[in-house]
Design a protein around this nucleic acid. Sequence first.
DNA 1: ATCTAAGTGATAATCATTGTCAAAGAGGAG
DNA 2: CTCCTCTTTGACAATGATTATCACTTAGAT
Lengths: 134, 134
Amino acid sequence: MTDAPPRMTKQRAAVLTVLKQGGFRSAQDWHDRLRHDGSTAGLATVYRALQALTDTGDVDTVLTETGETLYRLCEAREEHHHHLRCRACGAAEDIDMPSIEGWAASVGAEHGYSRIDHTVELTGVCSDCAKAGR
Amino acid sequence: MTDAPPRMTKQRAAVLTVLKQGGFRSAQDWHDRLRHDGSTAGLATVYRALQALTDTGDVDTVLTETGETLYRLCEAREEHHHHLRCRACGAAEDIDMPSIEGWAASVGAEHGYSRIDHTVELTGVCSDCAKAGR
DNA sequence: ATCTAAGTGATAATCATTGTCAAAGAGGAG
DNA sequence: CTCCTCTTTGACAATGATTATCACTTAGAT
């Protein structure tokens, strides 16, 4: 009785296609790109698809300082990693810092905290955007 | 022509008073506590006071995974620090990891990024809440 | 006491996101 | 092929945190 995997519909395929453009973008941004490419998918459908893809681990999410959620196709489903994201164009690099994991757990334990979770995000301006004066 | 410091009103004083209860809480949560203590301050005023206190560095903020902003009185106005926050009761410890600052800058530079900013937040369940079965 | 600009608070507006629900589409059984 | 069922879709309403608006109050200076 494993829950059935969601069906691959035209709309979901279209979402996956635009996601291949890369970069972290908002749901509404991805929706705009989809419409621009001729898709008639509704905004709610895009949200649902992104949510589903996030649940299955195919998409990474990040929150901005304004509370918006940004989504990006997650090429390699690895352990757990962090991001260095360009604030101007949404491009991102995967960063790994293995020592963070252990550090978080030990700092938590030192203070008597359990069930530690952590968030590490880096943002900046990539070289292309810097050249373009962003 | 330095911009005038905001006036200290009855409402702002009241906000500062409840903030002394400690912990990271939402604006609406602080507002509820204020009303419970007999203040008639409006929600908008609480938001404005928290915003002003954040701007002056007297209050620290953190975002939850749902996009809510949490506020806490910032006892010592130091350089830059991170938090270990209890997801159950909002209590928090200040954490410092001096090496993070340099690490962020060097990782950014390695990838050609400039104007690096970083976010590091730890959450967990504090010992009191763990005992209480939260 | 009066004047003036800032602060207040009720309420409306905003914006991302989620819920609702009738209509459309995909398979399977006959 | 046709009917039936169950999922997905898409337009739109609803939510919830935050911000803007605006008439009214109040603190401080003159």
